[in-house]
Design a protein around this nucleic acid. Structure first.
Lengths: 133, 133
DNA sequence: TATTGACTCTCCAGTTACTGGAGACGCTAC
DNA sequence: GTAGCGTCTCCAGTAACTGGAGAGTCAATA
């Protein structure tokens, strides 16, 4: 399986697959005589694993950690749960922040007439007069 | 007002204030003979404006746009509302994405016993067997 | 007056996770 | 054999800073 087949199977751009090989995350299983990367099923599985983990918001370093757990037959699920729970907490925090941002901005947008007059509650809301809100 | 006073007043790191000057976002109002940046109230107000807009998730380029509207006495609030509404839509989209991520990951974490045994639904959930979920 | 310590300057490198492009080589089909 | 892909490596750029080096500046103290 050459790199484009592997990237297609994994749902990742070719560039990204090459990048993951460069940083030692998922290497090609072998090379052709002319230097083309070859990926076997195991390597593709790892690529999919990484893609999914990235979609969950795990950083590359966290992916590295998860991958080593994934590859380790003796890993405890406690290790995995610890990492995943940490991520879950971060996601929840991000959600709360986004919510307050959303509410604040929505309030300003609602208050804005959106006509051609220069008076604008959004600009005012961003200005220093309300900087401590 | 030197740079540290301005950064303190604006609630931004000194490095960031210098960076904003470098990229032509908010310049110092003047310099001392020895080259120290000096900020007047107007410049500080702009820095605060930018900090707030950044907190709302506006990109630097959007901040540039908002700042020009902010500085333009003749800007219509329609322009501002358009930009803010776009941002609001993006925030809502991000919220929905985070929500589904959260739900999915929370489900996996819930299903994980978190003991020393290698069987782990989180790892399985990240693996290719469920890649199409 | 000399010196200490904090502050500032510019410039360069590093961060994250890629993405784009150049220039060269390989592969396949007609 | 040549056209048109695919692939290789390497370099640069992205966003929005952050950290650090090395040098100059300023205010207060000994």
């Amino acid at each position: 399986m050459n790199i484009s087949a592997a990237s297609g199977a994994a749902g990742l751009p070719v560039k990204t697959v090459r990048y993951y090989a460069d940083i030692g995350l998922v290497s090609a299983s072998s090379r052709t005589a002319s230097g083309y990367r070859l990926y076997d099923d195991g390597a593709v599985r790892k690529l999919v694993f990484i893609r999914r983990a990235r979609e969950f918001g795990f950083s590359i370093d966290e992916c590295r950690e998860l991958l080593s757990l994934y590859e380790d037959q003796h890993r405890s699920s406690a290790d995995v749960k610890r990492i995943a729970s940490k991520r879950l907490g971060e996601i929840a925090k991000k959600q709360r922040e986004l919510q307050s941002l959303h509410d604040e901005l929505a309030h300003l947008v609602d208050a804005c007439r959106g006509d051609d007059r220069p008076d604008c509650p959004i600009i005012d809301g961003l200005d220093h007069r309300h900087a401590d809100m």
